[in-house]
Amino acid sequence: MIQERIGYFPPSLGVRLRTSGITKAVRSFSLGVVSLICSIALLAAFWALVSALSKNGLPGPLATAHVFWELVREPFYNNGPNDKGIGLQLILSLQRVFTGFALGSLVAIPLGVLLGSSPMARRILDPIVQIMRPVSPLAWFPIGLAVFKAAGSATIFMIFITSLWPTVINTAFGVASIPETCKNVAMVFRFSRWRYLTRVLLPYSLPHIFTGLRLSMGVAWLVIVAGEMLSGGTGIGFFVWDSWNALSLERVMSAVLIIGLVGLLLDRGFAYVAQRLSYEEAA
């Protein structure tokens, strides 16, 4: 037996590093809080300035905060089709986004794997992807309406199309960049197709796939607001449009804030999962 001689780490040193790590964490946390307060203050100041310049055409932060509180205090009330709480609208929007996004991912990941692993598939499918990708998601809405004959399904279809491209492209990139050594290992040790897929291809590409999913989710969330403005009925996008028609700009501003915060949470959630899934790169 050979004993490993390198990589020995004195335990005392480890402990000291850990305590200094905690102090460091506390310091970076308090720094984070301070800078967050600063950026909120900056945003509020700028907002107040624009509001004053528009002679209160745009409601200021204080007026908005009041309406915001009203909205958030009772988020789930339901007084019929044209009067729902903001929480309900948000849930309806999220449902559409996740349905479209999930369907899109189910198509996009296998498609990306195919594009990344077969040069022939890439030659045939790449032009299609390149042509469809730059099309504004909103342009798909009438097509969805024509096919599904329902605004709700058309909205989901729009989200579906939107969430395809970033995932397809990132997955294909990840799969195409699998190192030659990994492929050779699979060949030398006679990995079956399934073993190659689950033990080499997917683990290697997973960080890339998640980058794609995260971008897809970001775009889907951008698009849902516009989509619901077109489709009407329910959802946070409809809420914005409805509030504008009711000339309640405080409600519009509140909704904008909520849309931003939810988008941020979605993005951070994906970033967190992606980080958990990424492996340590071997030197």
């Binding site: 050594t181 990994c182 050779n184 290992v185 060949m187 030398v188 040790f189 006679r190 033990r199 080499v200 683990p203 492996y279 340590e280 790169e281 071997a282």
Partner: peptide
Amino acid sequence: PGPDRGMVFQHHGLLP
């Protein structure tokens, strides 16, 4: 390639 010829790669070739 086949398992009758085992291989040690230049840079270990382990799956990270």
